Amino acid sequence: MRQTSRLVAGIAASTLTVAAAGTALSTGVATADTSTCSVTSHATKNDISTVGITMTYDKTVNSGSVGVGTTVTYTDVIGTTGIGNPYVNTITDYPPAGFAAPISASITAYHLVGGQTTENVTPEPNAGGWKVTSTGWFVNSGNPVTLTTTYAVPSSVTAGQMITSGGIGVAGTVGVSNNLPNLTACFTARNANAGESLLGSLGNNGLGSSDGQLSSTGSVGDILTGVLKNLIGS
């Protein structure tokens, strides 16, 4: 009887050990999955087409936590570590699936007169993404070309959801041209706070923008101040 009891106890202990190991394994897998939500990606190109010069490509989202119904901004940077002078004439940004057309976009690039300058651009649809074009943006080791694109976060997104963008596409001189579908950026959605909700509501009705400016009547702060003055009669 004692031997039977010892055998049962041993089996029970082994079962608990296996169960604990299974739990630890499951927890580890879950942790590994969540750690894949990276706000930035980096890639390089160094082959016969680059003539010994390394091209660099980066995509970054402005925050790892973004409110539902607000906006999110992606920054795509194309550069080089060498002294060559490739030219980029097209950059395509691929947002997350289900995102609508960009709210705004800008290009920062080097110009012979003025150096690095930023200008607003209007993206056009391109194979599921949004492209901007030029006769050629100059790139060297100290002067990358940067595309910044802002999108609205759809209300269909739920808090806690990890949202991963698409990659980028680059066209230009042979060495710099590249298609990078895995150059992604990820953020975790959250509920918008009160200020973000107000700005989003104003923007959706054509009254505001992400920086809190109204189209013709001043800032959001001015409007709120006016409302409070009316309420308290001062």
Rank of each mutant, 00 (worst) to 15 (best):
Q3H: 15
T4F: 15
I11C: 10
L16T: 09
L16G: 03
T17K: 12
A19N: 07
A21N: 15
T23H: 15
S26H: 14
V29Q: 14
D33T: 14
D33G: 09
T34C: 06
S35T: 15
C37D: 12
S38K: 15
T40F: 14
I48L: 08
T50V: 11
T50P: 12
T54D: 01
G64I: 07
G64C: 05
S65D: 04
V66T: 05
V66D: 04
V66K: 09
G67I: 12
T75I: 08
T75Q: 13
V77F: 07
G79Q: 10
G79I: 08
T80V: 05
T81A: 12
T81K: 14
G84R: 04
P86F: 04
V88K: 10
T90K: 15
P95E: 13
P95R: 12
P96Y: 06
A97I: 14
A101D: 06
H111V: 11
L112I: 10
T117S: 13
T122Y: 11
P123R: 03
P123T: 03
N126L: 11
N126V: 04
G128F: 11
G129T: 06
W130T: 05
T133D: 06
W137P: 01
V139L: 05
G142T: 07
P144R: 07
P144E: 03
L147M: 10
T148F: 03
T150D: 09
Y151H: 09
Y151L: 04
S155C: 00
S156C: 00
V157P: 00
A159G: 02
Q161S: 05
Q161R: 03
M162N: 05
T164Y: 06
S165Q: 00
G166C: 03
G167C: 02
V170S: 08
V170P: 06
N178M: 01
L180H: 01
P181T: 00
N182G: 03
L183W: 01
T188F: 03
T188E: 08
N191I: 00
G195R: 10
E196F: 07
G203R: 14
N204R: 15
N205I: 02
G208W: 13
S209A: 11
S210I: 13
Q213S: 11
L214P: 00
S216C: 08
T217C: 07
D222Q: 10
I223V: 15
L228P: 01
N230W: 05
I232D: 13
S234F: 14
